[in-house]
């Protein structure tokens, strides 16, 4: 098995590391960088709990190798927070709408919703469903999540 030197930027911080070829980006973020906000759900690309931004695009980190993040910009849920660690606008909206229960799918939901709002400042409920359609949640039934994204988009528009 080959091992490789990588340099990756996660939440705007640069890390250098040596990884075995088979280590997934998900395992690398959690175990090597101790960024445990990204969650392990299914490890076969269906549930979306491990979602991250890969050069700004939402993808599943269980379906990427750590080595594929070499020279890439990664954002995890921790990176959606303000510089002081407090929740950003979307995260606050998730709290205000109680868009979660156990909190396990929440980081993935936030990543998908964040990517949506970057492209669409006023998404409809159907567009939100489309963006989180690949993120499974067993607690909420999704309604409060959809409402939270709408709340965030409204606040973001108002603040412009």
């Amino acid at each position: 098995m080959s091992s490789h030197n990588i340099r990756i930027s996660v939440n705007e911080k640069t890390y250098r590391s040596t990884v075995d070829s088979r280590i997934t980006l998900l395992d690398f973020l959690r175990n090597d960088l101790s960024l445990t906000g990204t969650h392990v759900g299914c490890e076969h690309g269906v549930c979306g709990a491990c979602s991250i931004l890969y050069d700004g695009t939402p993808v599943r980190s269980c379906s990427l190798l750590a080595i594929q993040a070499d020279k890439r910009q990664i954002t995890t849920v921790e990176g959606l927070c303000n510089a002081d660690g407090s929740p950003g606008v979307l995260q606050k909206a998730f709290c205000d709408a109680h868009a979660m229960q156990c909190g396990y799918c929440t980081p993935g939901m936030l990543i998908s919703a964040h990517a949506l709002l970057e492209q669409n400042s006023n998404p409809s409920a159907d567009e939100i469903k489309e963006s989180i359609g690949g993120n499974l949640c067993r607690c909420t039934g999704y309604i409060q999540i959809i409402e939270a994204v709408q709340l965030a988009s409204q606040r973001l528009r108002n603040s412009r």
Binding site: S51, P58, V59, R60, S63, L64, S112, S131, G133, G134
Partner: peptide, 9 residues
């Protein structure tokens, strides 16, 4: 085809 996240890759 899949979902937006899988289509991104």
């Amino acid at each position: 085809v899949g979902h937006s996240q899988t289509r991104n890759r």
